[in-house]
Amino acid sequence: MKKFAITSKGDSKSNVLTHKIRTYLSDFDLIYDEDQPDIVISVGGDGTLLYAFHRYSRRLDKTAFVGVHTGHLGFYADWTPDELEKLVIAIAKTPYQTIEYPLLEVLIRYQHGGKETTYLALNESTVKSVDATFVIDVEIRGQHFERFRGDGLCVSTPSGSTAYNKALGGAIIHPSLPAIQIAEMASINNRVFRTIGSPLILPSHHTCVLKPVNSPDFHITVDHLTLLHKDVKSIQFRVADQKVRFARFRPFPFWKRVHDSFIGEE
Rank of each mutant, 00 (worst) to 15 (best):
K166I: 07
G10H: 02
V127P: 04
A52C: 08
N214P: 02
D35S: 04
R191A: 15
H206I: 05
T94N: 11
H219W: 12
N15P: 08
P212E: 08
H112I: 07
T7M: 11
S198V: 02
P203K: 02
L227S: 05
H174F: 03
T157R: 00
A92S: 10
D137K: 10
A64E: 01
T226L: 05
S125A: 15
K230D: 09
G45T: 00
V43T: 05
E146C: 03
S12P: 06
R22I: 05
Q36I: 01
F53G: 12
F252M: 11
P81Y: 11
K86L: 10
S198T: 08
G150T: 03
G71V: 03
F65G: 08
F246N: 07
D151C: 03
D241E: 15
F252N: 15
T226K: 06
F145S: 15
C208K: 15
I201V: 13
E265Y: 05
D35G: 02
I108N: 01
P95E: 15
P102K: 01
E139K: 05
E83M: 01
I91A: 06
A167M: 06
V66M: 07
V258T: 15
S176G: 08
L202D: 10
P175M: 09
F4T: 02
I89M: 11
P216A: 11
V43P: 10
S129P: 14
